[in-house]
Amino acid sequence: MIRVLVVDDEELVRSGLRMILEVASDIVVAAEARDGTEALAAVARHRPDVVLMDVRMPGMDGLSAAVEMSRMAEPPKVVMLTTFDLDEYVHTALRAGAVGFLLKDTPPRDLVAAVHTVAAGNAMLAPAVTKRLISSFAERGPTRSEHARKRLTELTAREYEVVCAIARGLSNAEIGRELTMSEATVKAHVSRSLAKLGLDNRVQAAILVHDADLL
């Protein structure tokens, strides 16, 4: 069972998200919160697998809460909710450890699929809007690109191929088919690559590749 925490300052939005998510037999909304402060307390108390959290809220906003959650010993997988498809706060949240973001008008079926995706350990890179965000807000320039490329030289040739595939939005299964390896082997390469690069998740790896301007 996938346990989800829904965080939004509007009760109507929270209720709507709960109704959508709990249609799935393997998802339960473990708790709701109205702002970042309540969200942090709810994570500590209910230990959700996934947090769906609004970016903009009174008091502690979603960005600040995402940063705090990333510092927890066992952080949940955070997906930011926003009404803006090119919101600079979302990019900052990705760098803080969030695994992706969704627009609030995401179709119900896609929302449920997104929860399944992040719960399985994959980043929200498939939606076109996420790719636009990474492409638009990745901080490039000669110095940053050079630094990103230097970091990537720490990887083996195979690890480099896997990380570039992640940046293209491929899932572990898709990477396995493309590079002719088992999904378990792909997962091992992903874990080793993240450890070598000092990164927390696949989204940060994708941003690094985009920073290096290699796609």
Rank of each mutant, 00 (worst) to 15 (best):
A33H: 04
L111K: 01
A128M: 13
V112E: 07
A44Y: 09
L86T: 13
T180E: 08
M80K: 04
V28C: 12
V162N: 03
A167L: 01
R168Q: 11
T130L: 03
A39W: 04
V118A: 00
E183S: 03
D49N: 10
R149D: 00
T156F: 11
E154Q: 15
R144L: 07
D61Y: 06
H189G: 00
P75C: 05
E10P: 00
R45T: 12
M60H: 04
T143D: 12
G97H: 09
D26E: 13
R151S: 06
V79N: 00
R109T: 14
K150N: 12
A126P: 02
Y89A: 11
P108Y: 05
A44Q: 14
V190Y: 01
A188I: 09
E68F: 08
A123Q: 06
L179N: 03
A98E: 02
A138V: 08
S191D: 11
K187E: 12
L5Y: 04
L63C: 09
G100I: 05
L21T: 02
M60R: 12
V67P: 02
L94H: 05
S25V: 12
A31T: 07
E139I: 11
G176F: 02
P108Q: 12
H116T: 01
K187N: 11
S25T: 13
F101T: 01
E178Y: 08
T153V: 10
V29M: 03
A93R: 01
A96V: 00
E22G: 04
L199I: 11
L152R: 05
L63Y: 14
E146Q: 13
L63V: 14
E68W: 02
L5F: 03
P48Y: 02
S171H: 09
D200G: 07
D213K: 15
L197E: 06
R95H: 10
R168K: 15
G176K: 05
L152T: 04
A113T: 09
A157N: 07
L194S: 00
E154T: 13
V163S: 03
V23T: 14
G59M: 05
T117I: 01
V203S: 12
A148Y: 02
D49T: 09
L133M: 11
R3T: 10
A65K: 11
E183R: 14
E154A: 15
I27R: 10
L152Q: 03
V23Q: 13
I207Y: 06
